[in-house]
């Protein structure tokens, strides 16, 4: 029982295996961190959405009026654009997993373009709403609504904007320079997680803010 044998740490693991292990650790570390980051984003968006929901619950007539003013067409188009961009994103990932870098570039470029159009249409929507009196300035007709509507949607738009930049700077340009391959697509997957998350947030925002 009390006999103690001294064992040296095993250094006979081959270098390649060690490298593979280190890489696997890196991949799982980074993905884990990305998910944790998204978890904290869930909470930030959640606060903003909850604040809106409280307002919606207490002031149903105001929201109905704004909905009547704004119509649903523009935002429905935007929703489809974002869903489509999410699809493009995942198709791009699929292509690079199969080793098709050209496909990756094309699909992610489509994603970025759709994201840009989304932002442009959101700007149009903001101007329509401002004209209808949904303004942050006190005294405007729908001031209270504006205060609860703009922060979550703007914050989301900001995320889309960051996502577009991300797509261009860290996915498309490196891919054009020859990065990424069938065994090396962590960067694409990373961006995918972010982009799909932004899409999920929009799915919730769309329902809670524009449809409810």
């Amino acid at each position: 029982m009390s006999e103690v044998s001294i064992q040296h740490t095993d250094v006979s693991v081959s270098q390649a295996a060690a490298r593979a292990k280190a890489k696997a650790l890196r991949v799982s570390n980074y993905k884990f961190a990305m998910w944790l980051y998204l978890a904290s984003e869930v909470v930030i968006f959640g606060t903003l959405i909850a604040a809106y929901a409280v307002f919606r619950y207490n002031n149903p007539e105001v929201v109905h009026e704004v909905h009547k003013e704004a119509g649903v067409l523009l935002v429905a188009i935007n929703t489809f654009l974002l869903l489509m961009s999410s699809w493009c994103m995942v198709m791009g990932l699929r292509d690079i997993q199969m080793g098709n870098r050209q496909g990756l570039i094309r699909w992610i470029a489509a994603t970025a373009v759709l994201g840009t159009v989304f932002i442009a249409l959101q700007a149009v929507e903001y101007s329509v709403l401002s004209a209808a009196g949904v303004l942050m300035t006190p005294g405007a007709e729908f001031h209270a609504f504006a205060a609860h509507f703009y922060p979550p949607t703007f914050f989301h738009g900001l995320h889309v904007f960051v996502g577009v930049l991300w797509a261009v700077i860290w996915v498309i340009i490196p891919a054009m320079r020859g990065s990424y391959g069938p065994g090396d697509y962590l960067g694409v997957e990373f961006f995918g997680l972010y982009w799909h998350f932004v899409d999920v947030v929009w799915i919730v925002l769309f329902t809670v803010i524009y449809l409810w």
Binding site: F32, W35, L38, A39, V42, V43, G46, T47, A50, A53
Partner: peptide, 13 residues
């Protein structure tokens, strides 16, 4: 990692 904050969120909302 995803479900716990969503649960917490729903609770608070």
């Amino acid at each position: 990692v995803l479900l716990i904050p969503v649960g917490v969120m729903l609770l608070s909302a």
